[in-house]
Nucleic acid binder design. Structure first.
Lengths: 197, 197
DNA sequence: CGGAACTTTCAGGAATTACTGAAACTCAAG
DNA sequence: CTTGAGTTTCAGTAATTCCTGAAAGTTCCG
């Protein structure tokens, strides 16, 4: 089997990108191939098409499974295992966020917490701990936000993203809202909903 | 000079984390050291304290500068260049977001655009392009959101993050708002601002 | 149970990336 | 100019990571 130029270009680019992140070029290419494939592919076909050794593909798939990024499927009349990426692209983003959090953020938070607890032995230590505390707070804030957002369904998430920075205007709207219905008219509190949206 | 245990632990951890991202362990350690340091440090002091060769430090600092993550400073009465991280941690996040976008996201978007434009040579190509289009749209959406959010000042950003997923409730509030002031009372349209907040 | 079809593991070689020391370069002060 | 403190470059080596083929493992069927 041979790749079409479109798939090949994507696979190569994704491989390069993969190696800038934590995954190897090979793993990136396997993922890219599965991502654009019409049907689940068996390992030997992947090895064939990408010119990797069968064992390399096996390792790569194992890693992708550990990220929960591919699912495994058995096709009737074929003993081989077939692999596919998640179909819903938003689910892919959610999975990535979860896994990166588990692997990178959580351990970092735990180290930061430990170091902040230590008794400082010098003014330099006290300063360092201050910086670590800042970092810890920032990460926790981002994390709580991400947890929160993970709970939304996709439609809500998209709506939120589309709103972008204008959400701040909405926030101000809210602050002025309590005045409404207490004898003030909309004009009195200077609300123009359409402008906000 | 010798590192205190607190700084050393942080530097080591950050080095490991760095190597999971695109940067080398060395560069991660240099950054971590500068991040917790009370004062800007000259290159030779960094080399001394981390036990790296002077040239390795020079390379590392150059890379950090290319990320705009350290600034360079001349202290009176000292010919050496001194290096420091950005003081404002939110500015660090913004800078990181910008640089990663420039280095990873933008090139990917451009590849995706090109491939989507190609004339498909098969049904498989048509399917692949559909997937690429999905990915392209998703990235663009995230990107526009991030551009938008970058424009907010830090206080607004923090407020937004703290709001988290509850922003959706706010959005619903807005949808019900036009009824207000048109003869309906707050009770009629079932708004409880405090519950939302 | 035996064996075919398929998968995984693993030791070691290949390729890549990181790091060093020596040499070249820069620049300001004398 | 010249000197020397400081910085960068670069070629070669060290360290790491990646990839392979051979062998061992698993599973399912007859």
């Amino acid at each position: 089997m041979k790749l079409t130029p479109i798939t090949e270009a994507f696979v190569l680019h994704f491989g390069e990108m993969g190696s800038r992140w934590g995954i190897s070029r090979t793993v990136g290419q396997i993922y890219a191939l599965l991502f654009v494939s019409e049907r689940p592919l068996p390992a030997d076909e992947i090895a064939d098409v990408l010119n990797f050794s069968r064992s390399n593909v096996s390792m790569g798939l194992k890693e992708l499974q550990s990220w929960h990024l591919v699912r495994l499927q058995h096709l009737p009349g074929d003993r081989r295992e077939h692999f596919a990426t998640l179909g819903d692209i938003w689910q892919i983003v959610r999975t990535l966020a979860e896994e990166r959090r588990r692997r990178e953020i959580d351990p970092t938070l735990s180290v930061l917490r430990d170091l902040i607890m230590e008794t400082p032995a010098s003014p330099a230590d006290r300063h360092a701990q201050g910086r670590l505390r800042e970092m810890h707070e920032l990460i926790e804030l981002l994390l709580r936000w991400s947890d929160d957002v993970q709970k939304l369904d996709t439609a809500q998430l998209v709506q939120l993203l589309k709103l972008g920075g204008r959400v701040v205007a909405l926030l101000e709207l809210k602050n002025r809202l309590p005045l409404l219905g207490k004898g003030k008219s909309r004009a009195d509190v200077d609300i123009d909903v359409d402008e906000v949206l």
